[in-house]
């Protein structure tokens, strides 16, 4: 699909680790959602997480910015360990952007205000500068002309692109995506994926929960397969899709291939 990018990906020099998860467990009440997760993500790396519904993919990436709390093991992001310390949580959230399945734009603020809110309130960037940055990123996601509209006036694909731009305005070191295209109509999926591929080309560190094989093949360094709260298999995209090792992976891949 995008050969140049693929090549870039393959001869990556392993940057320093930016997210390190070791022996991490999480329970919802009695329910053991995440079991012994070990995952290191390096700077500039792009990881795709896939797996059946309910396998804990969302929960895993939500642990990385503490939208969910883990109960055992360690999570270190950008050198800071996630504990109950609110200061550290705040610092980590500044560096980790997140894009949600349902966009979660702030409906009472204009697009521009959505984008400047974080930089102005959290990073204490002057308003004029924040607006300039916002326009830069809106340009990048190809909707600068919508800056003064409100989220309710935009299509799903446009809203998701705004959501990506909103995260980028914080100049994060890592971007988390939780099924960014699964709430979109087919014709809007491409416009969002294109933006994500651009982002990948610029070397952004990305952890993406997605079943988009095309995106995985063209932009990812590694694909992780999760099932029942465990990371079952992990491989480079080509190998992962062509030559899955585990039975559960094979079954899952046959199911998503069947759907397409």
């Amino acid at each position: 699909m995008n050969n140049e990018l693929q090549k870039n990906g393959d001869d990556r020099s392993p940057g320093e680790p930016i997210v390190e998860i070791t022996a991490m467990h999480k329970w919802f009440g009695d329910f053991h959602v995440l079991r012994d997760i070990n995952l290191t993500v390096h700077k500039g790396e792009r990881i795709i997480i896939c797996g059946p519904s309910g396998s804990g993919k969302s929960t895993l990436i939500r642990c990385i910015n503490r939208l969910e709390e883990h109960q055992k093991g360690r999570i270190i992001v950008d050198g800071i360990e996630l504990t109950n310390d609110l200061k550290n949580i705040g610092k980590i959230r500044e560096e980790v952007g997140m894009v949600f399945q349902h966009f979660n734009l702030f409906p009472h603020l204009s697009i521009l205000e959505n984008l400047t809110l974080g930089p102005v309130c959290v990073r204490k960037v002057p308003k004029a500068e924040a607006e300039e940055t916002a326009m830069y990123y809106l340009e990048k996601v190809h909707i600068a002309e919508q800056a003064l509209k409100y989220p309710g006036q935009l299509s799903g694909g446009q809203q998701q692109r705004v959501a990506i731009a909103r995260s980028l305005c914080m100049r994060p070191k890592v971007m988390l995506f939780d099924e960014p295209t699964s709430a979109l109509d087919p014709e809007m999926i491409k416009e969002v994926l294109d933006v994500m591929i651009d982002l990948a080309q610029e070397g952004m560190t990305m952890i993406v929960v997605s079943h988009e094989m095309g995106f995985a093949k063209s932009a990812a360094h590694r694909v992780l397969f999760m099932d029942e709260g465990e990371i079952v298999e992990e491989n480079i995209p080509v190998e992962f899709f062509e030559n899955p090792q585990h039975e559960r992976t094979k079954l899952f891949l046959s199911q998503i291939l069947h759907m397409e």
Binding site: N65, L105, F106
Partner: peptide, 16 residues
Amino acid sequence: RGQYEAAESMGLNYSQ
């Protein structure tokens, strides 16, 4: 819940 999560994931504190 999404509004709370979007706000939190940006790093806004409780009062913000």
